[in-house]
Design a protein around this nucleic acid. Sequence first.
DNA 1: AAGACGAAAGTGGTTGA
DNA 2: TCAACAACTTTCGTCTT
Length: 307
Amino acid sequence: MANMIKKCPECNSINLTLSEDKGEVICRDCGLVIEDKMVDFGQEWREFDHDQAAKRRRTGAPMTYTKYDRGLGTDVGQKGDIYRLGVKGKNKFFRLRKWQYRISTAIERNLKLALAELKRVASYLKLPKSVEEESARIYTMAVQRGLVRGRSMESVVAGALYAACRRHEVPRTLDELAEASGIDKKEIGRTYRFVTRELGIRILPSNPVDYIPRFASALKLSAEAQSKAVEILEMAQKSELTSGRGPTGIAAASLYVAALINNEKRTQREVADIAGVTEVTIRNRYKELLKKLNLKDHIKKIKKDVE
DNA sequence: AAGACGAAAGTGGTTGA
DNA sequence: TCAACAACTTTCGTCTT
């Protein structure tokens, strides 16, 4: 009862739907999957000076059975997150000091640090709560299975975040993760594969469509161009142009074409930078799109109309 | 001068013997 | 375990606007 979710943390929509088989709550507006019964690891950090919370913590495991939302504002903006970071940094020493008396196992110490790092990176990437929690869960499992041994804590955190993003269909590229966490891209990829394999986490290949909205807004494209891009992308998928190709490249090419058609031209370089691929890749995808989808005539017609 | 295009060589990851 | 392979990148020269 207490952990009913009323609003989508991503877009604040109340248009949520429950998928019975998976036990998931899904936002119908933005497609975000908000898992129910998700443990909020963040919460204990926020309550460190409450006597009750402290008592709970002493029971051992970092899992809290605190309620999901408990006035935890879904409206807390990004600024708020940054502000909290500062406070957290300062208070970290206090807490660690205090807890030295109480916490004995290495696992728990590791978790405290790792979850703080995780929270930092997640807020830097503006990830929705549900993803942050999922990655916290993944990381916790990884620690408990001793998968962190021989790897840096930060890289496992980054790997867990990457996996959580993929599962929740809000993919970030490895480059973005690398930038946010300061870990080498290859290293993240390695630990990501390792952790997901060891934990048996099933990851669907990421869908290029999931990248469109983010890239489009980064490019300041209109909503029309964005939906045009999705349209193009779906056509491409039907023509089996997308299998085996990097999803970001396809998303980028679709956006590029859509921008052309909508007379909102962006250079290949602009799109390439945003999508984290090279112009060459965009060109290759773009060429395939034109050939297979007979968009060429379409574009020519548009050009004539402009003249 | 800037963007678009394409060829050629190099890189890292996957696959199959 | 290693070699072949596909996708992607880097680099560079040429063409177009």
